[in-house]
């Protein structure tokens, strides 16, 4: 789902729930850019395991040395805990693929004054 586009798989029972989680993650902002992490294209995947009641968010940061990295990852956990108290939140940080300008959504670009 790089670039904020989420594919809905109608055979997957958790698809709609994942879409809901994605919308919730729009409340998490990058404190420097004031743009949410979905429109920044930082979230690479959302996985829901109904058996273990776990939500796993696979994401990246705009820079490996981002001083706000901890804060953003913590915010994602906070957000999941807040909106989905019945689930265990898990955030997995990855640097592959590396985040780039192309990961931004149209809305992200607009908010950054680039559209």
């Amino acid at each position: 789902m790089i670039g904020g586009d989420m594919e809905i798989d109608i055979r997957d029972k958790t698809s709609f729930f994942k879409a809901q989680v994605q919308e919730s993650l729009r409340t998490v902002l990058d404190p420097e850019l004031d743009v949410n992490i979905i429109d920044l294209g930082l979230v690479y995947g959302i996985d829901v395991n109904e058996e273990t009641k776990t939500i796993t968010v696979t994401m990246t940061l705009s820079s490996q040395y981002c001083p706000m990295g901890d804060a953003i990852l913590q915010s994602v956990e906070n957000c999941l805990e807040h909106f989905y108290p019945a689930y265990i939140p898990k955030v997995e940080l990855t640097w592959e693929p590396r985040w780039s300008y192309e990961s931004l959504t149209e809305e992200g670009l607009r908010q950054l004054g680039r559209r």
Binding site: D70, Q74, S75
Partner: peptide, 16 residues
């Protein structure tokens, strides 16, 4: 940023 991380890191994502 340093002050924000201390005061808001535990709150960010839960509320505005």
């Amino acid at each position: 940023f340093i002050v924000w991380a201390r005061k808001y890191e535990h709150l960010a994502g839960k509320s505005k």
